[in-house]
Design a protein around this nucleic acid. Structure first.
Lengths: 203, 203
DNA sequence: GTCTATACGACGATAGAC
DNA sequence: GTCTATCGTCGTATAGAC
């Protein structure tokens, strides 16, 4: 199970494939990118590539996992709300990966799709973490609402996901503003409920 | 351009195809549904079907247009906010069409995709209407925020789109709750900022 | 275990007959 | 306006070399 022994090379190659695939999807978008093209970029034949994955959708799902992991690691140690901003900014640079994420989310509607398990784990996890952060903010008097923290967390995730659809069509849409505006609405101090002020304080 | 003359039959057939395609996508999901299957359901060969459309993506885009039109007509005369609830409830019954919508939104990231023009028209239109409704609510003192109406409108659209991604994975997610919660946060009367009350009043 | 060669069925697209 | 026939490409499956 570890990376030692005769599996070392295989694991390394698998990781390389995922890295290369992520690059290609980021640069050229995920649509119209065939597995044969990915294989060629890895100096591999198509079956050689498929040796490491059960199917195309399995590969795509693992690319998504890598992306999630990368974003998570870069935001390590930060506050949960900070991490959200970080992930948003990262996503805003790579339309191809946002496109991949949204497409996979649609495909994962089918319980039999490999990505279904991924999202089925991911959303509850994100909701839990966001819920904890919201609960803390309410307890400390920073947020002023009696809406249950779980529901506020669900609302936050919806905003972050949803703005991406608008952004995919029109890149001039500000991907951070709606989330910041939501935070403003949640904030206890009424003086900050307007746009003139600092919005969210960070940095 | 009208439905009269020798084009009458063609236009009728085109409408029938779109209606049948919508049905199939709603029942079986849009994934794994080939054009040959749609053609067969219309008693047509594949080229026979393609005579009416430039490409598969063109057909899909027009299916989306029909869906939008249908939802719009059913909500005619209602308040804009009411229409949102109507569209949400309608969508919640047909996962296959939500899946289609999300997939197309991702595909439309490419400016060359036929659906790009559709979304590029749709979002500004929805934003304008929502902006007007929000401005009215603020002017009448029903909403209490100094966030510009355009930004509140963008936030609303993000919530409605985003909750669909969560719902596609877990159908037990309430598609209306987040939007209602957002309205609660916007509402002027602080006594209604909690979940105990009526939430949004309608009907 | 790692990888190539080859082949299969299905897809969307198109040419040309009627 | 609709068909048959065909094309190129896709993801997938199998056989077997090393």
């Amino acid at each position: 199970m570890a990376k030692r022994g005769p599996y070392g090379k295989g694991e390394a190659k698998r990781a390389e494939i995922l890295r290369v695939a992520l690059e290609i999807f980021a640069e050229e978008g995920y649509r119209g990118t065939s597995l044969r093209k990915v294989a060629a970029a890895c100096d591999l034949s198509l079956p050689g590539l498929m040796h490491y994955f059960d199917s195309k959708e399995d590969l795509l799902t693992q690319v998504l996992r890598v992306r999630d992991e990368t974003a998570r690691l870069r935001g390590a140690g930060e506050d949960d709300i900070e991490q959200v901003h970080h992930v948003i900014q990262e996503g805003a640079k790579t339309p191809g990966l946002v496109e991949l994420f949204v497409s996979m989310a649609a495909a994962a509607a089918d319980p039999g799709h490999p990505a279904h398990a991924h999202f089925a784990e991911r959303y509850p996890l994100l909701r839990e973490r966001a819920t904890a952060a919201v609960r803390r903010a309410v307890d400390e008097g920073r947020y002023d609402t009696t809406i249950p923290p779980e529901r506020v967390a669900t609302l936050m995730l919806a905003v972050v996901d949803g703005i991406q659809l608008q952004w995919l069509i029109d890149r001039s849409v500000d991907m951070e503003q709606p989330f910041d505006d939501l935070l403003t609405l949640l904030r206890a101090d009424d003086a900050t409920r307007g746009p003139g002020g600092a919005g969210v304080s960070r940095g």
